[in-house]
Computed example of a mutant assay.
Amino acid sequence: MKYIVTINGKKFEVEVERVSNGNGQLEASTDSKKVSSDEISKVITGGIKVSAPMPGKILSVNVQEGQKVKKGDVLFILEAMKMENEIMAPEDGTVEKVLVSKGAQVASGDILAILK
């Protein structure tokens, strides 16, 4: 299940997975790492932020973390007001973090990715 979580006014998409132990009971997965708002802030404060220019739905994510991009490369397709909008790299760099996934609803100004 996917959820949108708001931390300090910023929205993040998170995915929660149910894990069964085989006897019908559900267990929480212990291999996930708890991320504090401080850790999120550290990631967000560094690098070049690629933000949503308007509210809408992410139709496609065209990059992965670690991928090199050039200025003008299309990183995301955002559907807003029944139109597809290309979100492009503002400059050359490497994708450090992708903060949204396909199908996510975003608000204007939400950070979609961080480039280094």
Rank of each mutant, 00 (worst) to 15 (best):
M1P: 14
K2G: 00
I4G: 00
T6Y: 03
T6I: 15
T6W: 09
T6H: 02
I7R: 09
N8H: 13
G9C: 05
G9W: 10
G9V: 09
K10T: 12
F12A: 06
F12P: 08
E13M: 07
E13N: 07
E13D: 06
E13G: 03
V14H: 00
V14L: 14
V14G: 05
V14W: 01
E15K: 10
E15F: 11
V16T: 06
V16D: 05
V16L: 11
E17M: 08
R18Y: 09
R18N: 07
V19F: 09
V19Y: 07
S20Q: 08
N21Y: 05
G22Y: 10
G22D: 04
Q25Y: 11
L26N: 04
L26C: 01
L26I: 15
E27K: 10
A28C: 00
A28M: 07
T30L: 10
T30V: 14
D31W: 15
D31I: 13
S32E: 08
S32Y: 10
S32T: 13
K33T: 12
K34E: 09
K34A: 10
S36E: 03
S37W: 01
S37T: 12
S37E: 15
D38N: 11
D38H: 14
D38G: 05
I40W: 14
I40F: 14
I40M: 11
I40E: 14
S41Y: 14
S41E: 12
K42E: 15
V43E: 14
I44R: 01
I44A: 05
T45K: 05
G46W: 12
G47Q: 06
G47R: 05
G47F: 03
G47S: 11
G47D: 03
I48F: 07
V50Y: 03
A52Q: 07
P53V: 10
P55M: 03
P55I: 13
G56W: 09
K57W: 03
K57A: 05
N62D: 09
N62M: 04
V63I: 15
Q64T: 13
Q64M: 05
E65N: 06
Q67T: 13
K68N: 15
V69K: 01
V69R: 02
V69W: 01
K70V: 15
K70F: 11
D73A: 12
D73Y: 10
D73W: 12
V74D: 09
L75R: 00
F76G: 03
I77W: 05
I77S: 01
L78D: 00
L78I: 10
E79D: 06
M81E: 07
M81H: 10
K82H: 07
K82Q: 03
M83P: 10
N85G: 08
N85A: 04
N85D: 06
N85K: 02
E86K: 15
I87D: 02
I87K: 02
I87Q: 07
M88F: 08
M88C: 14
A89M: 14
P90A: 00
P90Y: 02
P90V: 08
P90N: 02
D92W: 12
G93A: 02
G93N: 01
T94M: 13
V95K: 00
E96F: 07
K97I: 06
K97N: 13
K97L: 06
L99N: 00
V100P: 09
V100N: 09
S101V: 11
S101I: 10
K102C: 00
K102P: 01
G103W: 06
Q105R: 04
Q105E: 15
V106T: 12
V106Y: 06
A107G: 15
I111W: 03
I111L: 01
L112E: 12
A113L: 14
A113S: 12
L115H: 06
L115G: 04
